[in-house]
């Protein structure tokens, strides 16, 4: 099987608090895998461990067949060139304008000329339905939804094999959330980029996922497809999806 991401028995703890307790998951090429779970369940830590931003205690992480745990720094950067990340808050560089933000990875990562990088950046800006008129705007001048779109444009600027979406719709209104979901679907289904997303937005989850993993107490306790999510009688999933106050979570 051709996996773009392979995680094996990943463990991470902060002091005595175990956050990830032997997680294993695989994301196939052109697949959209979504990890769901309650707040503080370790979803963001999982993504950061996969990307090498947080050092795991043990386990294996492979991106495009490259074992991230044993690569030198330079090789890790090479592997990350084929990854795009949409951070929860966008993480746009405050000191750079929109076009500079989008072209950043192309110039500094890929070493493209500024002219070429700006041309690609403008294409990506159009792809996320933003006009060229905001190209010179700074992140502080953009709305939350626009920031997310610019961040998405930056994430796909380098034509990555896989994109990581960290809570892509958090803090956005339903309409903007819908737009972001459609853009994610566009990236995964039309462009064919694999995706690993984390969210607790059920509406978003149903729109963007091919396969879902449920993270609870540091483990993936359930895995299934979108349709299985609606039919499963797993009490944790049911409570999470239905949003009822009573259930195993409450205990």
């Amino acid at each position: 099987m051709d996996y773009v991401i392979r995680v094996e028995n990943l463990k991470k703890s902060f002091g005595s608090r175990i956050v990830l307790d032997g997680i294993s998951l695989n994301v196939k090429r052109r697949e959209s895998y979504v990890v769901i779970g309650g707040s503080g369940s370790g979803k963001s830590v999982l993504v950061k461990c996969i990307l090498g931003l947080v050092k795991p205690k043990s386990g294996t992480v492979e991106i495009n067949g490259q074992n991230m745990m044993h690569l030198p720094q330079r090789a890790i950067f090479q592997t990350l060139l084929k990854c795009g990340v949409l951070f929860q808050g966008g993480a746009l560089f405050d000191s750079l304008n929109v076009i500079e933000n989008i072209s950043f990875g192309l110039i500094y990562g890929y070493g493209k000329s500024i002219k070429e990088a700006y041309r690609i950046a403008m294409e990506k800006l159009e792809l996320v339905d933003l006009g060229v008129e905001i190209a010179k705007a700074y992140p502080a001048e953009l709305s939350g939804g626009m920031k997310k779109r610019v961040a998405l444009a930056r994430a796909i600027a380098t034509d990555p094999d896989v994109i990581f979406f960290d809570e892509p719709t958090t803090g956005l209104d339903p309409v903007t959330s819908g737009t972001i979901n459609e853009l994610i679907v566009k990236c995964t289904k039309e462009i064919g980029i694999s995706a690993l997303s984390i969210t607790h937005d059920i509406k978003s989850l149903k729109r963007i996922s091919d396969r879902i993993g449920f993270l609870y107490k540091g483990k993936i306790i359930w895995e299934g497809t979108n349709s299985e999510l609606t039919t499963t009688d797993n009490p944790y999933i049911r409570q999470f999806v239905d949003g009822t106050p009573n259930g195993p979570f409450s205990h």
């Binding site: 090498g52 931003l53 950067f77 990854c83 990340v85 951070f87 405050d94 500094y108 990562g109």
Partner: peptide, 12 residues
């Protein structure tokens, strides 16, 4: 604001 993490993920 995760901008330093973003730098790393952009291979910088």
């Amino acid at each position: 604001t995760e901008q330093i993490d973003a730098l790393t993920t952009l291979s910088v």
